[in-house]
Every structure is written in structure tokens, then in C-alpha cells.
């Protein structure tokens, strides 16, 4: 495969705008401003983190769960809203005391425009530390579809491919 790298000012500008958007999103999560974070999603958002299994090379087509399979997350706007309200309930013990997280979003690739919006892939590294010394690091890929909205974007689709099969945490009580 050839990795062609073009000198394209319009693309650079688009990359810059998307990067700024994702950095802002990451800051909202790390600053625990969940209602503002939720406002970045389109009303028809589908937010999915499929289950992942260990498979041989010949069987990699079954590595990720499909649309009829269960998933680590499979959310619409209403269910994301429910999760966000759980944070504000005052009894959200799994995140109270809250985790300290840092979301690193990098390796941005713009795959092009579809009917739904701009297809974008990024790599993430999420550091999570909570209570006295519980520390976890999650890496993976986000596949997002961004829809232009009021000079910025809204996230219309998010698919999160976590680089773990057995999940190495006691609860996914935070967002990626």
C-alpha cells in the first residue's frame, strides 16, 4: 500500500478544525462536564463499543460483535442522557468519588464524506485513576461520523474499537 501524502490546504484546515473539536470534547470529559459533552452528539447518535474476541487469523471476520450481538456500549441519545443523569444523581457510587481521566485523541485520519457526514478515525489513549491507586489505561480506535453544525460539528456516529477482549476494569462507568 502506498501512503500518499498530499499538500492540501483545505484538508489541513479541515484536520485543524476536527482536531480542535476532539480536543474540546476530551476536555469536557476530563473536566466532568457531562451535560455539555452530551450536547456534542446529534439527536440520532448511535454510540457503540462492540465486544471483541480473540480469534485466529483465519477467523478475524468474527473478531468484533455484529449488529445483532451484545456490545460493551450500544447507546442512543436517550440512553446516553440516562448515563449522564446518573452522574448527577448524588448516589453514583461507581464514579463518586469520581475517576480522574485524561483522554488523548491522536492519529487523526479523515476518510471522506458520506451521506451521514464526515467519516473520521482517531486513536485514543484513556488514562483512568480512581480512589487510592486504581489505575487503568485503555487504547483503541474511534470511528466517528461528524456532521457540520453551527460552525462546528456534532457527532452523529461513534464506534469505539477497544484494544482489549477481556475488559481489564471492574466497571465501564466512564466514556470514551
Amino acid at each position: 500500500m502506498m501512503l500518499e501524502v498530499k499538500d492540501d490546504l483545505a484538508q489541513m484546515l479541515l484536520h485543524y478544525r476536527i482536531e480542535r473539536f476532539f480536543y474540546g470534547e476530551a476536555a469536557l470529559l476530563d473536566d466532568r462536564r457531562y451535560p455539555e459533552w452530551l450536547a456534542l452528539f446529534a439527536p440520532d447518535i448511535r454510540y457503540v463499543m462492540p465486544l471483541r474476541t480473540t480469534r485466529t487469523g483465519r477467523d478475524l471476520k468474527h473478531e468484533f460483535g455484529g449488529p445483532k450481538d451484545s456490545a460493551m456500549f450500544d447507546e442512543d441519545h436517550a440512553s446516553l442522557d440516562m448515563r449522564v443523569r446518573k452522574f448527577a444523581s448524588g448516589t453514583n457510587w461507581a464514579e463518586d468519588p469520581p475517576s480522574r481521566t485524561r483522554h488523548f485523541i491522536t492519529n487523526l485520519r479523515v476518510d471522506g464524506e458520506t451521506d451521514e457526514g464526515i467519516a473520521v478515525r482517531t486513536a485514543f489513549l484513556v488514562y483512568r485513576n480512581r480512589l487510592e491507586r486504581q489505575t487503568e489505561i485503555f487504547a483503541g480506535e474511534r470511528q466517528d461520523v461528524l456532521r457540520p453544525h453551527e460552525g462546528g460539528f456534532r457527532i452523529a456516529r461513534r464506534r469505539i474499537l477497544l484494544d482489549q477482549s477481556t475488559l481489564l476494569t471492574s466497571s465501564l462507568s466512564f466514556f470514551i
Binding site: 465486544l51 460483535g65 445483532k68 450481538d69 451484545s70 477481556t166 475488559l167 481489564l168 476494569t169 471492574s170
Partner: peptide, 8 residues
């Protein structure tokens, strides 16, 4: 339903 959640 397809898929087994596995966590530690």
C-alpha cells in the same frame, strides 16, 4: 444473544 461480556 450473541457475545459474551468478559471483565475483571
Amino acid at each position: 444473544i450473541g457475545g459474551i461480556h468478559k471483565w475483571v
